[in-house]
Write a protein that binds this DNA or RNA. Sequence first.
DNA 1: GTGAAAGCGCTAACAA
DNA 2: TTGTTAGCGCTTTCAC
Lengths: 299, 299
Amino acid sequence: MNAETAERIRAVAVELGYRANPQARALSTTRTSMIAVILADVTNPVFFEVVRGAELAAYEAGYTMLLAETQESAERERAVLERALSTVDGIVLTSSRMSDSAIRQIAKVKPVIVLNRVVTGVPSVVTDNLRGMRRAAEHLGELGHEQICYLAGPEASWADGMRWRSLREAAMELELRVRRVGPFAPTVNGGVAAAAEWGRQRTTAVVAYNDQMAIGFMRGVRAMGGQVPRDVSVIGFDNSNMAELVTPALTTVAAPLHSLGVTAARNVLAISRGAQARATEAVVLPTKLVVRESTIAPE
Amino acid sequence: MNAETAERIRAVAVELGYRANPQARALSTTRTSMIAVILADVTNPVFFEVVRGAELAAYEAGYTMLLAETQESAERERAVLERALSTVDGIVLTSSRMSDSAIRQIAKVKPVIVLNRVVTGVPSVVTDNLRGMRRAAEHLGELGHEQICYLAGPEASWADGMRWRSLREAAMELELRVRRVGPFAPTVNGGVAAAAEWGRQRTTAVVAYNDQMAIGFMRGVRAMGGQVPRDVSVIGFDNSNMAELVTPALTTVAAPLHSLGVTAARNVLAISRGAQARATEAVVLPTKLVVRESTIAPE
DNA sequence: GTGAAAGCGCTAACAA
DNA sequence: TTGTTAGCGCTTTCAC
């Protein structure tokens, strides 16, 4: 058949509204052109850009994104994974509640990329927590603060552990004192609770596990009659869209949310197409400190 | 085969990690147990709860949700739909950019539910804009305002048309004066632009197309040296999670975001299972006015 | 290069 | 009831 007739056939096909049946194709090729993104909470602004990035990367590669929310429930995460597993060509796991070994198990069956967490043997994409926290500490140091209180996020969170350790190390080098309160839920309400805790032994500066907590903290301080940044400087983490809408606008470590999503999706696609995963090496994406109104020099 | 052996087989099956292949099943049944949710902008807080509701309803019914973002591009919407169409059992269309007839076309091929828009012949689920706007007008009237400025959203938006008309009617009955400025983009920046426009002929009260615009408006007013609510009362629409985080906290008409998502998903599933769609009747979900700090009596 | 046929893993219709 | 078989619509292999 020559190229011209092929073209004509194609033309008639679209005219007739013919669409290849993806299920039939999938059945013989075992590839569905779909990837799954699993996350704990669609409501968390941190994920917006991640989801958008992943969807964009998928779209560009001709893939469709399937999104499932686990509502922070391990049981639901299993159920969701169970369902998606045989339907997709790869999985992006965000804020998973599962154990490392459970994740490795899944990774044996389908390509998996873990986001913001390191699981040995499974490729991952993470934020550069280390340098992010370092910049936060430097900023505070430059302003003249001498003591920092870290508002910890969820206990089991890999990212929380990294952030706290990074902050502590940076503080040590810069000769700042740090302490840690928590753990708290990584939400606005968690931040409010953290404010109460902080109130019992105040510091002139606070670094929160994430923006949501930082925002809650500011609110808590205000409820206690205090004022940010006059009474306490606060730094968040993520630079979610909330950060600049809040008053005072939040100084925060900007995580590369969009890139995180794009990179994760691309990598999972690459692996599913047979690329050799440089398994052990996590891809580390850079952060940057965004200084806004919530940090000033102490009195 | 008796029930007992059936059970044993089942047991062995899970032990062996057997999973029915969904593609093969879909091929013979023509049902995939997936629904698609199409939206313009994952980043818009209005959709969080909608998406969550839809995902929840899907999950409970044993379905998986496929999410696609159109980035406000009609072309992308087509492409996305093209891809999803033969992969899902039903489609929830949110903030579609397509024409009514294009939507009807799709609805012929697969069950479709339209959200926050009425397309004759296609079942839809909408917010009760009428009573919502009426409550907003009443609230302002009770406070003693006599003139209201409506900050219009996107021109082509069905919801914008409804909201403006509803507000105007309510105002007329309550003997308030209203005018309309815009259209503006339904975003924070759109609201900032609206503030400039409003500044040329001020009113003591403003009702915005949505929360995002209301927030942008407040910011714009502040940038112009004004203060909310002292200089102008403002009411948003949606009660997205931003509304209570902003300072001053935003008075807003709460749209039933979660129910919208749940209802849409359930209905599309029902139709796909053969339920007779009460085609023409849109399901209208109730709103409620949430009074916070951004509205007070005029001076 | 072109065409025919087998088979992907399931469901449903049909015999037994 | 139980067992058998014919497809679902594609891809791929294999013979021509």
